[in-house]
Design a protein around this nucleic acid. Structure first.
Lengths: 321, 321
DNA sequence: TTGAAAGCGCTACCAG
DNA sequence: CTGGTAGCGCTTTCAA
């Protein structure tokens, strides 16, 4: 019984006599033998893991996403090597190099850095699919930030709002920039003044959203509706609104968050399905692993407006508009 | 310039002349050479990854935990191979075998199955540290569920509550069983009847907690205080309480959740710090990797009562008690 | 300071 | 149906 025969049994190859097969299998379980998949990958040249690199796993959006990727990867017998960038370009680069060193089969990345040209040399053997944010020249799985935002703002306007604030205008996130752009577009289209005071620059984080909201409501002409640029901002706006007993102010948040439906009124959110995004990214990655020469593609995942009450509030009577 | 010299440069070994070193480094960057860490691990026998296996990454507790582990692992130059059990014993076993096949250096596991004896053979080379739930014969990093719960229930009683409900009594989770045990203990100690109607068995999930709460409040003698067995239950109780406008009912939830502080009243939670748990687990794992023969240890992480209002509510006047 | 050779555990290729 | 041999990319040991 040679080493090669064992290999054949382990890989379920056909040309092994039933008797030998049984004998090998018995030894395997007696010895608790476990095949070393790294050595297999080293020899065969086909890695058995994919790398996933996101901002931070503490973000519910990304944690759901990673969960979906893992489930899908398991079906293909792939392991998931997880890493995070912490929003830091240098760290992103380090992590990318580490993943390269692990010879992962491909990488799913939420990009932070602007320039990913240094990935070029590896892309033929190790494809990269961007998620959440697109990058020129790479495949990406994203949602239409601008369009979804336009829809939300149009909704406000159709209900009579004209003082509409945008909270969380954070220039560091390309997604947020696009959402802000959508917001601007719609106001202009409806001949509503784009008042900078209504969309002050600020970090798209819970705390700053909270203070920005408080500030907005103390303005001489406060907003009657607020659009939150991302879930963290949304939660901050909620905290402020509830703290000030101003739940009469309309609110739509980009990105769902837990308990959004439990609040009164329920918080209307633009939902992006992390599960679909994750699965689409991994499937695209699999395609690229099979045919690396495919031209980069942008895969759009539909968003859904989760109407729960806060987004459907009308402006108070007598408010200008 | 031999392959060995390159190896020396890559590993920052001393015995290389500066000139050679420079020359090698230049070639490395010109060729975009990246060391294959799998091959290195194969040869050296020292794996460069740890495995993390939790229920589901979608749970904020675990996602924070995994994030903390990853940060800490990065400091040691370790990669994190992530996997989830989905609460399923068979899947747990499969995943564990997969991680073994990857020859990870050690595993951090939130155990689901009762019997982990099949890990025995590997433990000498691949230590295992349990998190969240303890397992006989294994190292574990946990919180004192019973004690923390006792403290919360004592708090209710000291404020005059006698009708105290326990929502989310789910026999599948050993942690929840211990919390329920702590609850029982305190009631008995204070000669309060342990009414089964006040702690009905149910899944420790948001939806069932919501319906159980609704049911409890419709009882002839409804509870004046509720203890939620875990964050998901806590959110369910919140949804019910807010839906029924019964925010006068006191509530303490085991495990913090987002927006808990934004609600009115803020939800008092027993906070368990996922960051500390994760770091402690990885550090213990590192110890075990160095000295595998150490006797199993139980590491207790302190909890913190986050008083935000809901846990400090008094029973209504005239309520019996 | 540098290099040659062996071998980690596996599979591809070719023989028997 | 079964087995030997070579070699994946690296490090270790010993020698120059």
């Amino acid at each position: 019984m040679s080493i090669k025969t064992v290999s054949r049994v382990v890989n379920n190859e056909v040309s092994v006599s039933p008797a030998t097969r049984t004998r090998v299998k018995r030894s395997i379980s007696e010895l608790d033998y476990v095949l070393d998949t790294r050595a297999r990958a080293l020899k065969s040249g086909v890695p058995d893991a994919v790398g996933v690199l996101v901002d931070t796993i503490a973000d519910p959006f990304f944690s759901s996403l990673v969960g979906a990727i893992e489930d899908r990867a398991l079906e293909d017998g792939l392991s998931v090597i997880f890493a995070s960038t912490g929003f830091d370009s240098d760290r992103e680069r380090d992590q990318l190099l580490r993943l390269t060193g692990q010879r992962v089969r491909g990488i799913i990345l939420a990009p932070v850095a602007q320039d990913h040209s240094y990935l070029g040399r590896y892309r033929s053997t190790m494809p990269v699919v961007m998620i959440d944010r697109r990058t020129e020249g790479f495949d990406s799985v994203v949602v239409d930030d601008e369009k979804a935002t336009r829809g939300a703002i149009e909704g406000f306007i159709s209900r009579g709002h004209t003082r509409i604030a945008f909270v969380g205008r954070d220039e560091r996130f390309s997604t947020v920039i696009q959402r802000a752009h959508g917001y601007d577009q719609v106001l202009i289209k409806h001949n509503i003044e784009v008042d900078p005071a209504m969309s002050p620059p600020s970090a798209a984080e819970t705390d700053s959203a909270k203070s920005v909201t408080t500030m907005l409501l103390s303005l001489p002409q406060p907003p009657t509706a607020i659009f939150a640029a991302n879930p963290r901002s949304g939660m901050g706006v909620v905290e402020a609104l509830h703290g000030l007993n101003r739940t009469d102010v309309a609110l739509i948040s980009f990105g769902d968050f837990s308990l959004a439906g439990a609040l009164k009124p329920g918080v209307t959110c633009i939902g992006q399905d992390p599960h679909r995004i994750g699965v689409a990214a991994l499937e695209r990655l699999t395609q690229l692993m099979d045919s690396p020469e495919t031209a980069p593609e942008e895969i759009l995942i539909e968003t859904e407006l989760l109407q729960r009450g806060s987004g459907e509030l009308l402006p108070p009577r007598g408010s200008k508009g």
